[in-house]
Each structure stands twice: as structure tokens, then as C-alpha cells.
Amino acid sequence: MSVVAMKPTAKAALWMLLALSQFMLMAVAGRELTASLAISQILFVRSLIGLVIIVGILHWRGSWSSVHRGQLGWHGLRNSCHFIAQFGWFYGLAMIPLAEVFAIEFTVPVWTGILAVLCLGERMTLPRLSSIVLGLLGMLIILRPGFEQIAGPAWVVLGSAVFFGITHTTTRKLTADNSAIAIVFFMVLVQAILSSIPAAIQWQQPSPLAWFWLVVVALSALLAHWSMATALSHADLGVVIPMDFLRLPLIALVGYWFYQESIDLFLLFGAGLMLLGNVYNIRAETKRIA
């Protein structure tokens, strides 16, 4: 392959490295914040900062016309589910090893695939079925029910992965008639509203360090998703998404270095099966579309 042909892939790799660094930074910031602040307060401040940024972008670009009020019900469903999913994710960050949170989160494609077939009428292909089976097998290896007592927070993170799957499924529905920035605008708006009352009830004055981490959570979340979207503009899913699985070994190292968390071989093996299923499915879908 020529150097010229490699340029888009190299760009995608660089953008994905930026996305991965932001996902890990967000996890560390979330771990630090949950030690002193309520999750609802974290989500409220994160959404409020995101809303200010998105409104600024819409005003600067003069693109308010892209934010229309059609499909408000779908926006409400999507962002309510996303709010629940994020709540469970942050709860997991506070209670179980970072690598376990990320590994369980990798079941999201399984639930998305199942829901897409049931709710959107998508076809159940052999690669998709293989991805689902390997994903569920990997999850069982990580959680090992019957051999170990599954910690309550692990169940919460698994539930959040299901709600992330609902979020992704409804996003597919919305992208047909809504721009990406419109979807993000309604996301931060709805989540700011949903988190406002519990945040007000549980509000504690953040320390200067907590304010720093709150800003990090908000900015890293926006930058991570923007970087991943940019990476996908330079290369296809078959290149970009497998790189996303580097989050697991990288966050395992972060947990080991900063929080003295052990690295579980069962977790890595289970996540490897999930990776195998997803790569197979993505490559098959890429060939089919091409």
C-alpha cells in the first residue's frame, strides 16, 4: 500500500488515539469526582457546560435552523435512556475496577444489535449473530456467574450497557432526519433538565479541584465523541472501531498505575472474545456495503 493511500488511515489512527485518551481522562475524572460529589450533580454540571458550548457553536455557525422540533418524543426517549446509562456508568467507576467497567461496557454492540433487529427490522446476519454470541460469552467469562458472586455495581454497569444499546438504536432512528449537532444539542438539554432537580437536592459546593475535574469530564466527553466521529470520516468502521477496543488494556494500565487495581486475565480474555465478534461483524458489514 502506498504512502498516499495510508494517509487517511494514519489520520484516523491519530484521531482515535485522541478519542481514547479523552475516554480514559473522563473515566479518571469521574472516579475522582464520585468520591466527593453526587452523580446527579456531576451529570448536571457536565450537561450544562456541554449545553453552553453547543449553543455557542450553533450561534457562531448560524445553524439554529438545523435544530428543529420534529421527533421530540424520540429525542426524549434517547436522552432519558442515555441519562440512565451514564448514571450507571459513573456509579460503576466509583465502585469497581476501571477495566471491569470498560469491559462490561463493550457489551453495548450486543444489545444494540439485538434491539436493531427487534425494533428497527434490521436483518439478523451470520456475522451479527456471531458477534452477539461471542459478546454474551465474553460477558459470562468476565462476570463468571455461579463461580463468583457478581458484585451489585457490575449488574448496574451491565444495565447501563443495555440502556446505551437503546440509546444507539434510537440514534439510528434520529440520524435519518436530524444533524449530529442537533442530536447533541437535545442530548445535553434533556440531560441538564433531568439531572437538575436531584442535583439541586444533593448539591454540595465543589472544591476548586472538583471544579477542575468537572470541566475535564465535560470537555473530554465532547472531544472524545467529536474525535471518534472525525476518525470515521477518514476511515471506515472496520479500521476505526477495532481501535476503540484498545481502551480496555489502556484503562487497565491506568487502573493499575494510579489505583493499584489488579489486571484480571479472565476480564482480558472475555473482552478479547467481544473484540473478535465485533471485528468479524464490522468487516463483514464493510464488505457488504462496498
Score class of each variant (00 low, 15 high):
L93F: 04
L58E: 11
S131G: 15
P206W: 04
S80H: 06
F44K: 08
G159A: 13
D236F: 10
L232S: 02
P206E: 12
I166D: 07
W74Y: 13
M1R: 10
H234M: 05
D236M: 01
V55T: 11
P242F: 07
D244Q: 12
I251K: 01
F258R: 00
Y91S: 02
G88Q: 05
Q202R: 01
T169Y: 07
N278A: 12
F83C: 03
F102C: 10
A35F: 05
Q204R: 15
M243G: 14
C81M: 13
F164Q: 02
H75C: 08
I132C: 12
G270H: 00
G70V: 01
S130W: 12
Q202D: 03
F266K: 04
P97T: 09
H68N: 15
S233A: 15
R123H: 13
V101E: 01
H59Y: 10
G152S: 08
A12T: 09
F90N: 04
A10M: 14
E122I: 07
P198E: 00
L72S: 09
V101Y: 00
G255H: 02
F186D: 01
C81L: 12
F212L: 15
L237E: 03
A103L: 09
L237Y: 03
A27I: 04
A192Y: 02
E100C: 11
L18A: 15
V190G: 00
N79K: 03
L43D: 10
R69A: 08
Q204P: 06
G165P: 10
L246R: 13
S207N: 09
S2N: 11
A35H: 00
H75T: 04
A182E: 11
V133F: 08
P97V: 10
V67W: 01
A290N: 13
S2P: 06
G238C: 10
R69E: 07
W111F: 02
Q191P: 11
A284L: 07
F164A: 10
I132F: 12
S47I: 06
I251M: 00
S227D: 06
I132Y: 05
L33E: 05
V3H: 02
L33S: 04
I251C: 11
C119P: 01
A200F: 14
W213G: 00
A252P: 11
I166P: 05
E148Q: 10
G135L: 08
M139R: 02
A221V: 14
P249D: 01
S196W: 00
A154E: 08
F44L: 15
A29I: 05
V162T: 08
V67R: 03
V184R: 03
W64M: 00
A192D: 09
S130V: 14
F266I: 05
A221S: 15
P127Q: 06
L174S: 15
S21Q: 13
I193T: 01
